[in-house]
């Protein structure tokens, strides 16, 4: 009797999520599969056209440009962000004087809303009045035209990304603080150098955190939209900043090709799913659970 009542209460308590899950996740997900097989615009009813959208996508040059841009961006910004974040977290974990201050400083940029971030960096990277190139000039470097040169527009976005790694720094820091000091001390007694300690004790101990940041990073970077949308209208210069989510958005709301956009959405979902599974699989041998964790 008790159990049955609890079960009923359970369903009752979970009800909002059942509804939310069904209406705002499951339904759109299923509907978008259907739409992806349709010619569909905002005003017209969906008309089934089979695999046409997918076939068209695979021969769509711009689709591949956005795939390539997004992949390059992810390949540059993920490692850059993760290495910077981990390095900063390790420095903070050394517990030198002023750690609280430094922690705040590194975290602040990640609080800046995306649109403000984009607007601010448009100003910093401006070709004529940009302060970054002015600073570079002071140390004798002729800075590139960050916003106008297709070779530098993606690196500009990577710089922005690295500036906002504060979140990841804190997550790493939490992980590092859970590494038992006894382990580090044991390594020291064995005469391990700083690098060896890091390589063989610290990194393996926080590997689950690294994996978590990697997966979150993949999901985030593949969807990159707001910052390039504000900074580089139309993915300029010469489509070097035209990312997957921007092309998807343009197809859906500018060209009214919602079926096409849905097909793109599903390909993105499958890519994220595959990459997440791949990361989990590849990491099996390298990620050490237990010990450092708190969950």
């Amino acid at each position: 009797m008790r159990i049955r009542k609890e079960r009923l209460t359970g369903y009752l308590f979970a009800m909002p999520w059942f509804i939310g899950f069904a209406v705002f996740l499951a339904y759109p997900l299923v509907a978008s599969i259907y739409f992806s097989f349709c010619d569909y615009s905002v005003l017209k009813k969906p008309v089934f056209i089979g695999l046409d959208n997918y076939r068209e996508l695979f021969s769509d040059e711009v689709f591949w440009i956005t795939v390539k841009n997004t992949a390059i961006y992810a390949a540059l910004s993920l490692p850059a962000g993760m290495v910077t974040a981990l390095a900063l977290a390790m420095l903070l974990n050394a517990k030198v004087p002023g750690t609280t201050f430094f922690r705040t400083v590194f975290f602040l940029p990640s609080l800046v809303p995306m649109v403000s971030l984009a607007v601010l960096w448009l100003w910093i990277l401006n070709g004529e009045h940009g302060i970054l190139n002015e600073v570079l000039r002071m140390v004798g470097i002729q800075g590139p035209n960050w916003l106008g040169d297709p070779a530098w527009s993606k690196p500009a976005l990577v710089v922005l990304g690295v500036w906002g790694v504060g979140n990841a720094v804190l997550i790493y820091l939490a992980g590092l603080q859970d590494v038992p000091t006894s382990l580090v001390e044991a390594a020291e007694l064995d005469g391990a150098s700083a690098w060896q300690k890091t390589r063989h004790v610290t990194i393996p101990m926080i590997s689950p955190v690294i994996l978590f940041n990697l997966i979150m990073g993949i999901i985030g970077t593949l969807q990159v939209f707001t910052v390039p949308y504000v900074m580089f209208p139309g993915g300029s210069p010469a489509r070097s900043t035209y990312f997957y989510a921007m092309y998807l958005f343009d197809n859906a709301f500018l060209y009214n090709k919602m079926g096409y956009a849905s097909a793109m959405g599903w390909i993105m979902f499958l890519a994220i799913f595959a990459l997440t599974m791949l990361s989990l699989k590849l990491s099996e041998r390298h990620v050490h659970y237990g010990g450092g964790g708190t969950a």
């Binding site: 401006n126 070709g127 004529e128 035209n145 916003l147 106008g148």
Partner: peptide
């Protein structure tokens, strides 16, 4: 091309 780009950004 770069000179034109830089000029225009001002």
């Amino acid at each position: 091309p770069n000179e034109v780009q830089t000029f225009r950004s001002g």
